[in-house]
Structures are given as structure tokens and as C-alpha cells.
């Protein structure tokens, strides 16, 4: 059976036959979740890949859209995809602009852009693949690495607490924030779809497995073992809110952190231009 028979292949560049990820990597699950969400929007709302611009930074997950997705794709510098995407969106307010990148890219080196994009409430959909480690560079500790884990650059165990990125983005003002794991591909797809539909900044954190680096340093090993860990340690947000910090140690809270309306930046610019008597040329 030719690869082209896969229903998602109509959304991928025909010459890109192989994914560049390691066996068992969660990036492929997230890539599919994005494409299945677009597939549903295609059937329900007539959206096509021509309606999208995909922007990514540096790291394994920055290669989710580039080169795979058959759309305008912009692969940028480390930490900066949200800043690039902001310019794209303000220049092409009718396009859907989706950022796919990793936790190191978006929450470490690019953390300030993430905070301010959420605060501005610009209509971007940001999918952050969080594997808790620097995978591409060989297993260094990340701001998302669980405290105590021995990584390549925390050989005696990380002393820093892990970054609750979804909660931070919600606190910064984003109207839609959700977190799921790659063990929850349906929920992930629904959250991404909702994020694309949301007029405003939406942030979907996908807790994901890096079997090669995280699997090694966590001693969890294979992709399936990490997925089982996600399955066994995930906790719905509603339930987590009733629990103490001690009880929540080692748990992954999943669900929707917020879903609200707020004035969006690109549309406010359109309104201002209209008020000032000119449409964008």
C-alpha cells in the first residue's frame, strides 16, 4: 500500500516520505494530532492547509511541520518562533498561524516571548511538545525536568523544580490553555482543534516521550514504558484542584486550564485601521 493512501498524506509534502524522529518519539503523535484536527476542520469548516502558516523553532519538535506539512512553513531560530509568528499573524490576519516547538524552545530560551504573546492575546495556536529534556543535544536538564532527575547536566540530580508551563501561560492571560499527554491523542486532537478555532492565544502543552534521552536518564526506557507512566500518573485537573501539593507530587495534571474570551490583538488592529479610515493594503 502506497504511503499516499494514508488519509493524512494529503496534508503532507509528497516528497517527504519519512519522519525524522527516533522510533517511538512522541513528535509523530503530536504531528498527527495537529493534522487530524485540521482534517476535522477541513470537513466541518472547509479549512485547508492553504489557510495555515506553521512556525517552529529549534529542537526535535520544531521539525514537526518542517518539512512534513504541505503548507507555508517557517523554521526559525532557537526560542523565537512565537515572535516570528506574531509578525506573520499581524501581516496576514486571516491566516491561521500555528506554532509547534519544544519545551526548551518555548519555555526556556523563548519563555519571554511565550509570556508576552499570551498577555497580548494574539491569535496564535501554540503546541508545545514537552518531553522534559533536551533531546536533540543529548539529554541535558530542561526547565521542565522533574526535580531530582539525574540528567547529563544534572548528574547529581536536578535541584530545580519543574516549570508548570500551562499554568504560567494561563496566568499570563491566554484565553485557552490545555495540557494532555501523548497517551491521550484524542484529547490532544480536540484541544488543538479548539485552539485553532479559538480567536486568541491558545496554548496546548503535549507531555511527550523522548525514549532515547529521557527514557535513558529516567531509566523508564522504551517509549511504551514512558506512555504507561503517563497513563498511570495523569490526573484530571478538576480532581487535582482538590488535592494537596504533597499528594500531587509526581502527577501530571491534564485537562483545560482555561477557556474564556478576551480582546484579540490582530482583530483590534483591523478595527483600528477601519476606524482610521483605511483597510490594510
Amino acid at each position: 500500500m502506497s504511503l499516499a493512501e494514508h488519509p493524512l498524506r494529503k496534508y503532507t509534502r509528497p516528497h517527504v516520505k519519512k519522519t525524522t524522529t527516533c522510533p517511538g518519539c512522541g513528535n509523530g503523535i503530536v504531528a498527527q494530532a495537529i493534522l487530524w484536527a485540521i482534517d476535522e476542520l477541513n470537513r466541518e469548516e472547509g479549512l485547508s492547509m492553504d489557510d495555515f502558516v506553521f512556525v517552529s523553532g529549534i529542537g526535535c519538535s520544531a521539525w514537526i511541520p518542517s518539512p512534513l506539512f504541505a503548507a507555508d512553513t517557517l523554521h526559525t531560530t532557537h526560542g523565537r518562533p512565537i515572535a516570528f509568528a506574531t509578525g506573520v499573524k499581524l501581516g496576514l490576519p486571516r491566516q491561521k498561524v500555528l506554532v509547534a516547538s519544544g519545551d526548551g524552545d518555548l519555555a526556556a530560551i523563548g519563555g519571554n516571548h511565550l509570556i508576552h504573546a499570551a498577555r497580548r492575546n494574539i491569535d496564535l495556536t501554540v503546541v508545545m511538545v514537552n518531553n522534559g529534556i533536551y533531546g536533540m543535544t543529548g539529554g541535558q536538564t530542561a526547565p521542565t525536568t522533574p526535580r531530582g532527575l539525574n540528567t547529563i547536566t544534572s548528574p547529581y540530580g536536578t535541584m530545580e523544580p519543574e516549570f508548570n508551563v500551562a499554568a504560567m501561560v494561563a496566568a499570563a492571560g491566554a484565553p485557552y490553555v490545555a495540557r494532555w499527554t501523548t497517551y491521550h491523542p484524542r484529547q490532544l486532537k480536540r484541544a488543538i482543534k479548539k485552539g485553532i478555532q479559538k480567536q486568541g492565544f491558545s496554548f496546548i502543552e503535549a507531555i511527550s516521550q523522548c525514549p532515547v534521552q529521557y527514557g535513558r536518564v529516567s531509566k523508564l526506557g522504551r517509549a511504551t514504558a514512558i506512555l504507561e507512566h503517563f497513563r498511570d500518573h495523569s490526573l484530571k485537573l478538576a480532581k487535582a484542584r482538590e488535592m494537596s501539593e504533597e499528594e500531587l507530587a509526581g502527577k501530571i495534571t491534564v485537562g483545560e486550564f482555561c477557556d474564556r474570551q478576551a480582546p484579540e490583538l490582530a482583530s483590534q488592529w483591523s478595527e483600528l485601521r477601519a476606524r482610521l479610515g483605511k483597510e490594510q493594503g
Partner: peptide, 21 residues
Amino acid sequence: VTLFPQACKGMEDCGICALVC
């Protein structure tokens, strides 16, 4: 069910399908 064995990265190295089935 249609499988694309040319794209599969294998039971030994990945095996996620077996876990979730």
C-alpha cells in the same frame, strides 16, 4: 485496518500500537 510497513519503526524500537490496542 491498513498497515504501512515501510513507514513503521518496529515493535522492538517503538511498539506503541501494541501498548494501546
